[in-house]
């Protein structure tokens, strides 16, 4: 270790503060209490604009469609693809007509590794109605705040990955009018998700 002990301590303190903030947020917004998507008087959800491979996309573009949104990163090897698979399997439980009307949004909080082009390819792997979006750090942080999500870049000194992204893992169910209908645990089954989507169709 090169840095002075004091510097290390300071970094640790800052990280701890972030962690505590994140844990508090995660606790307050934990899926168990997520049926009412609001935190006290703060209403979660809302419009945002991000980048897709074919240009800017905002949530307003999805008006008229029930949307399932997930916030993660593409090089996440396990939790994100599992959640996206649940999402898209939920889509596939619907009839063809119903399926044609639902949309999925995958937001990457890792724009350094996930270009819009890479996200387009990644999303298409799961379902044709899933779009991959990312943006500037400011744009990403805004969406993350709006939806009560959480992420933190965690440097991994001991791994060839370089860094991992600690993150909340939830499915945001958005009504056709753009309002956040429900925040769902990523442990939801495809059948449960398709039932919830049908209620919004």
């Amino acid at each position: 270790m090169k840095g002075s002990p004091l510097k290390t301590l300071r970094i640790l303190l800052v990280l701890t503060a972030f962690l505590m903030a994140g844990m508090t947020a995660a606790f307050l917004l934990r899926p168990g209490s997520a049926d009412a998507p609001s935190l006290g008087a703060v209403r979660l959800g809302g419009d945002f604009q991000l980048q897709s491979s074919s240009g800017p996309v905002s949530l307003a573009d999805f008006r008229g469609h029930p949307v399932v949104m997930y916030i993660g990163y593409a090089s996440c090897p396990d939790v994100c693809p599992t959640s996206l698979a649940v999402m898209t399997q939920g889509f596939r439980r619907l009839s063809d007509d119903e399926q044609a009307r639902v949309r999925g949004i995958f937001i990457s909080v890792d724009p350094e590794r996930d270009s819009p082009e890479k996200l387009a390819e990644y999303s298409a792997f799961f379902h044709p109605n899933l779009v991959g979006l990312t943006g500037t750090r400011e744009q990403i942080d805004q969406v993350v705040r709006q939806y009560g999500a959480y992420y933190r870049i965690a440097e991994l000194d001991n791994s060839a990955l370089g860094y991992a992204v600690d993150h909340s893992s939830r499915l945001y169910l958005i009504a056709p009018d753009g309002s956040l209908a429900e925040v769902l645990s990523h442990n939801i089954t495809p059948d449960e998700l398709s039932a919830k989507l049908r209620l919004l169709l």
Partner: peptide
């Protein structure tokens, strides 16, 4: 793969972490 590492996941209050 260039490298294979042993990793684990933990979940604490809804936040998922992956570590070597």
């Amino acid at each position: 793969a260039g490298v294979v590492e042993l990793h684990t996941h933990s979940e604490q209050d809804g936040v998922l972490k992956m570590r070597r």
